[in-house]
Write a protein that binds this DNA or RNA. Structure first.
Lengths: 351, 351
DNA sequence: ATGAAAGCGCTAACAG
DNA sequence: CTGTTAGCGCTTTCAT
């Protein structure tokens, strides 16, 4: 009978703790204690158990462990768009910091769509993730209800919400910084550019910073462009019109502050295509400082976010929440942005 | 007593199937049947159960389900470098295709390091993933042993190994294609460029294609550059030397075939920095066709991989393995590459 | 059509 | 120091 059990164990895809126990001639608890490295096991048995583990190729079943412990070591990570280099870098950073603290990351991509955001969060919740890291958040109330109801810690990294810890840059300041750079260069007609898929809370706050900078310099009114590249039309101050209109005519914009680098680079591409020169015809400032922005051929002036710092603080925060070192109301930590001036900005061409 | 149970249920973070059952006045089995949408439940009770579920905000515990079913719906995805746009795009695609088939993706980033690859795979295995999708594979034998021992299906997408299903492009043909393009443009001294972190099986096969193309055209010998951008030194035919040496002197290379776009773009950046003109001084061909390559300012000639097709086929393959529709020895499916000619290549400058 | 009972692999008291 | 016991939340026969 023992032999049969043993045979089936080696044949089975995954040997269990029980297989190891009988193989080593000890009880399950002892094996468990060895696996978890608890004290109070004699060297002799410890060795016998280790040998059995190696021999059978035993790997603890995390599912079973987490079921009984009522907590997992999985962190759900909600990403706006993995193909966007900013998110890709953040995702990588987050994964590394999570792994360093013993957590595994489970990503879900939302495409900025609150429907798939909700679906993704539901999946994460069903997997009983220990916490959720939002790298982007639509602001959807159903998502919020869902997460709050299950009392799963949430941290918003480089995005915002008032119902969880926030680790982000001061987006308003960033918006001012980028806009001021254009104003100081002599621009008087400056547009704000964003991509519909990425218009979240951060985007709104950057817009506020942009408006404030204009106001302080007594320049106005603000001009908002919402554009899905590579279309040649965009929503300009709420009206669907050719994007080129913004940069032609008497009241043309000479400077653009984009709420993210992907939008900024897409605009630069558009400018190249329609023979508008950057920076002489249009100066462009981005936000994020994705690696691509530093390429000589792109040379995008941008408001840089310290990605790895954000990721590290974000993971530290949610780990503290999960492990109950951090209690009480949501915290809010802001880290500094700084402007990286490159060749996409200059004084406007004298008219 | 019943009331107490009920109260604690609503107070508990996650109501269980038992809570729902007692709330609806039925047995756990019935709730389970309703949740899984099985037939053989009267409309009346079905409704009562649904109501209880809504009221309590019940979400089935995937862990418990998977523990008893002895299989998960998690797919492990091994990624070389999430920050590399090719992998980022692939990861996104893979996630979408997986979700469409009811699987959740769990990523782990390896940085091309076989140590962290092994660690990542161990983690995935402990989570009892249903299968592993390799978007990059170092070739490490320990990783192989680990996966095979646990009899977890593996599929290699856009990378290779002989112990699992492969869905990839014909890398050798791709290597020939890119190299031939340079030969046809009139180049006679053509180097092969790769990045150490990305030198996997695919890279080796592309190198073979490169060599074959040179040989067929009676051009030789091959010249191999292994470079970690943005260093100004590289391993050239095995010797650590200034990268610039390759492009100066009598025997200078006028064309470079890079085994991936990131390397190609980095080289272009290097050329810009040292005032070598692309394509007149150096023609560059990449591999992958990442979105960035299509930017007017980059305009990289490259061998395009059909990313979404690769991801779709990869997920289809592993799903078939997991769900036992596909049995027997590893399969191997190749999809077509094609050359996208842009402005990074031209005839060599007459000397 | 519904319920009772067994058990997935593990941990966490508690005994010995 | 080691073993026994009782679940974690769910699915899955098998009765009723």
């Amino acid at each position: 009978m023992a032999a049969v059990t043993h045979d089936s164990a080696t044949a089975r895809r995954h040997p269990t703790i029980h297989d190891v126990a009988s193989h080593a001639g000890v009880s399950k608890s002892t094996v468990s204690n060895v696996v978890r490295g608890l004290p109070g096991v004699s060297e002799a048995t410890r060795h016998r158990v280790r040998a059995a583990i190696d021999e059978l190729g035993y790997r603890p079943n995390v599912l079973a462990r987490q079921l009984v412990q009522q907590r997992t070591s999985i962190l759900g990570v909600v990403v706006g768009d993995l193909a966007n280099p900013f998110f890709a870098e953040m995702a990588k950073s987050v994964e590394r910091h999570a792994a360093a603290r013993g957590y595994t990351a489970m990503f879900c991509n939302t495409e900025g769509d609150s429907q798939s955001e909700l679906a993704g969060v539901e999946t994460l919740l069903q997997h009983r993730v220990a916490g959720i890291v939002f790298l982007a958040f639509s602001g959807d109330a159903r998502t919020m209800r869902e997460v709050m109801q299950h009392q799963v810690p949430a941290v918003f990294v480089s995005c915002g919400a008032d119902w969880g810890d926030v680790v982000s840059v001061d987006d308003e300041f960033g918006g001012r910084l980028g806009t001021s750079h254009l104003i100081e260069a002599g621009h008087r007609r400056i547009a704000y550019l964003s991509i519909p898929e990425l218009e979240d809370e951060s985007d709104r706050v950057r817009w506020v910073g942009y408006c404030a900078a204009l106001k302080e310099a007594h320049i106005g009114p603000p001009l908002r462009i919402s554009w899905s590249p590579p279309s040649d039309h965009a929503r300009i101050d709420g009206l669907e019109r050719p994007l080129l209109d913004v940069f032609t005519g008497a009241d043309r914009a000479t400077g653009v502050f984009a709420s993210n680098d992907v939008a900024a680079i897409a605009l630069q591409e558009f400018a190249d295509r329609v023979n508008l020169h950057v920076p002489d015809d249009i100066s462009i400032v981005g936000f994020d400082d994705v690696p691509m922005a530093g390429l000589a051929r792109i040379a995008l002036t941008t408001v840089a976010q310290p990605r790895d710092e954000l990721a590290g603080l974000g993971i530290a925060t949610i780990a503290d929440r999960i492990e109950r070192r951090l209690k009480g109301p949501p915290t809010r930590k802001l880290v500094d942005v700084n402007l990286v001036a490159r060749r996409s900005t200059a004084a406007p061409r004298p008219s």
